[in-house]
């Protein structure tokens, strides 16, 4: 389809998404908006960075919380310790995402598969210990508290609705950016990395450079997620990037499914709902979350999204099956 014909469709989609976003605060209660919707949004934004790495480049990274933490910490440090104006700090923090991704990519550029997973896990856990131990900069295990979300055009982002709109717009922007990258030659190279490293190398691409740039691109979303999470929580501490969070991000992405990066938002919604409402029935929420994760891993290669898409492709099959039955019975009647 030529671009000129796709443009109106994309515009219509944007209008539709905009209308949906505008409608959400009216449809849900204030509690749900804050505890479920906004939280799923920033968790989902951070999740898209991992979903992109896994789904597009085939790189399972457990170091995305390190990027997330680097951005969040940088913003908190610049504002609270160095008195920088907030939007300058935000810009620096968002820029820190790709830079942190670049560093992680450079460290793990020669690894793949399980080895990469272990190396990035070591990086992620190392970042946590660094935040906990290196008190002069990170304030040790208390971290930074009392961070005030900024004002945007006079709207206070520490209030629900403005924060929701900003997070939603950020989510759409991040997804749009990823979709854009996927359509460039670089996006094709990332998929080459996922599908066949040897062939990619034979075609003259450097797998190291491709890996590093994939990490850098994904770092952007993790950084944005980190910034919004600090606005949301008003704080960041080593607890925000410990191994539980590392696994949580992987759970979000796995439950959602990585065939589409948007799956991260579905996963984030499911995990946030579980964390919030499972408490009413059991004290062992974590066991439930872990068990749900294990069940999804066992049942489906592509998470909930995979199951849903399967259903979608099953529906026409089922329809055809029943139609076939009817036609057979009609034939019998004719005979």
């Amino acid at each position: 389809m030529p671009a000129s014909r796709r443009l109106p469709a994309a515009g219509a989609l944007l209008v539709l998404i905009g209308a949906a976003i505008a409608a959400v605060p009216a449809l849900v209660s204030d509690f749900v908006l804050l505890q479920i919707v906004i939280k799923s949004l920033w968790l989902g934004i951070a999740g898209t960075s991992l979903a992109f790495l896994i789904g597009q480049a085939g790189l399972i990274s457990l170091a995305q919380t390190a990027v997330f933490g680097a951005s969040g910490y940088l913003m908190a440090i610049l504002v609270l310790d160095h008195g920088l104006t907030i939007w300058a700090a935000v810009a620096a923090a968002v820029a820190a995402g790709p830079v942190a991704g670049l560093v992680i990519g450079a460290i793990s550029r020669r690894s793949s598969d399980l080895y990469l997973m272990m190396l990035t896990l070591a990086i992620g856990v190392f970042t946590f210990f660094f935040a906990q131990q290196y008190q002069p900069i990170t304030r040790g295990h208390t971290g930074f508290n009392g961070f005030d979300a900024p004002l945007l055009f006079g709207a206070d982002l520490s209030e629900r609705k403005p924060l929701f709109y900003v997070s939603a717009v950020a989510a759409v922007a991040v997804v749009a950016l990823f979709r854009l990258v996927m359509r460039t030659p670089a996006g094709l190279a990332f998929r080459g990395l996922r599908d066949n490293r040897d062939r990619l190398q034979a075609l003259g691409y450097s797998t190291s450079a491709t890996t590093i740039s994939a990490f850098a691109v994904s770092g952007f979303a993790a950084g944005v997620g980190g910034v919004i999470s600090v606005w949301y929580n008003g704080a960041i501490s080593p607890g925000s990037i410990d191994i539980t969070r590392i696994i949580e991000l992987l759970i979000v992405v796995t439950i959602g499914g990585t065939i589409r990066i948007e799956g991260a938002f579905l996963g984030a919604l499911v995990v946030t709902l579980l964390r919030n409402y499972a408490n009413d029935y059991t004290n062992r929420t974590e066991t439930l979350v872990g068990a749900a994760f294990m069940a999804i891993v066992l049942l489906s290669r592509h998470g909930l999204l995979g199951i849903l898409l399967n259903l979608k492709s099953l529906a026409p099959k089922a329809l055809r099956f029943f139609r076939g039955q009817r036609m057979a019975s009609e034939k019998e009647a004719v005979a």
């Binding site: 696994i247 992987l250 872990g290």
Partner: peptide, 11 residues
């Protein structure tokens, strides 16, 4: 398999 063992860690 590795993801499954991560889930087991949490449980």
């Amino acid at each position: 398999e590795t993801m499954l063992t991560l889930g087991a860690t949490i449980v």
